[in-house]
């Protein structure tokens, strides 16, 4: 299994990671090695096996639909790279 540098560029775009041709080429090499390892999964037949998404198949617990958290907006927004008037500021997206 090999991954091309074009595929890396596509994956990096999906994952919002800046890349350039040199970086894509570099990652293509070691991602291909890792996918070679991953291919070893195919030596075992898994037909009819139920996928397991969680250890011991425990289900997520539900709780009453009531408000439990306090509003800590100011405290949390103090950590933001850029915030003003209760809003997170990002580069302009609509002209």
């Amino acid at each position: 299994m090999s991954i091309s540098s074009e595929q890396v560029t596509h994956i990096a775009r999906l994952a919002r990671l800046k890349t350039d041709p040199e970086k894509s080429e570099y990652f293509a090499k070691n991602l291909s090695r890792i996918m070679g390892l991953v291919e070893q999964m195919n030596q075992i037949d898994t037909d009819g096996i139920e996928p397991m998404s969680h250890p011991q198949d425990t289900a997520l617990r539900l709780r009453e639909d009531v408000v439990t958290a306090k509003n800590l907006r100011e405290q949390y927004q103090a950590l933001a790279p850029s915030a003003q008037d209760g809003l997170y500021l990002v580069p302009k997206v609509i002209e």
Partner: peptide
């Protein structure tokens, strides 16, 4: 780079800021 932690110094637009 929006709610907490490091944000790059230079970027062209929102997507570029994420990347």
């Amino acid at each position: 780079g929006v709610r907490y932690g490091f944000r790059a110094d230079e970027y062209l637009d929102l997507n570029d800021m994420y990347e």
